[in-house]
C-alpha cells in the first residue's frame, strides 16, 4: 500500500514538474517578441547591424587626404605577428642633405594567414595601422587575399 502511494506520488510529481517546465515554454511561445537576440543577417546588414568600434577585423594603413601614411618601416609589426602574415619591404632613399633613410616600399598583408589577434596594432609605435571593424572579407580568388596596404605614390607623414 505504501509503495503504491509512493508510486502515485512520483507520477503526480512528474506531471507537476513537466507542467512547470512547459509553462515556461508556453510563455515564450505566446510572447514571441520578448527578448529576441537573433540577428536577421544578411537582411539587416545595411540597417540595424551593430559592429562594435573595437571589433578586430581587417588591418588597414590609413592615409590622409594628401596620400600620406605614418609607417616608418620599422618592421616591429612583422616581428610581432605570430603567423607571418605581414611582410614589409623597404628601400634605402637618399635625401637632399645626403642622409640615408629607410622608406616603406610595400606593406604586404596576407589576410588569409591573419588570426586577428591584434599583436601588430599593439606593437606599432607610430599607431600607423589600425583594425577596421569590417568582417565580410571573403574573395573569389585566393591571390586577392594578399594585399598591399600602402597606396601607390604615398609618402611618410612628417611629424609636426
Amino acid at each position: 500500500m505504501k509503495s503504491l502511494f509512493q508510486y502515485l506520488k512520483e507520477v503526480f510529481l512528474g506531471f507537476y514538474s513537466l507542467w512547470t517546465g512547459l509553462k515556461l515554454t508556453l510563455y515564450y511561445f505566446t510572447h514571441p517578441r520578448k527578448e529576441i537576440i537573433t540577428e536577421q543577417y544578411p537582411e539587416n546588414r545595411t540597417t540595424t547591424i551593430n559592429i562594435p568600434e573595437r571589433f578586430a577585423g581587417e588591418v588597414i594603413l590609413p592615409h590622409d587626404e594628401n596620400n600620406k601614411h605614418k609607417c616608418t618601416a620599422c618592421t616591429l609589426c612583422e616581428m610581432a605577428c605570430p603567423n607571418g602574415s605581414i611582410k614589409i619591404i623597404s628601400v634605402q632613399e637618399e635625401s637632399e642633405d645626403g642622409k640615408k633613410k629607410r622608406v616603406l616600399d610595400k606593406w604586404i598583408y596576407n589576410l588569409g594567414m591573419c588570426t586577428f589577434c591584434g599583436q601588430c596594432i599593439d606593437a606599432c609605435p607610430q599607431d600607423a595601422i589600425i583594425m577596421k571593424n569590417s568582417f565580410e572579407l571573403s574573395v573569389y580568388n585566393r591571390n586577392d587575399l594578399v594585399k598591399t596596404l600602402n597606396k601607390p605614390g604615398s609618402k611618410l607623414k612628417e611629424k609636426e
Binding site: L13, G14, S17, L18, T20, G21, L24, T25
Partner: peptide, 12 residues
C-alpha cells in the same frame, strides 16, 4: 530562476 524552473525541478 527560469533555468531552475525548466530543468532542475524536472523529475525526468
Amino acid at each position: 530562476k527560469e533555468y531552475e524552473e525548466l530543468i532542475t525541478g524536472n523529475v525526468i
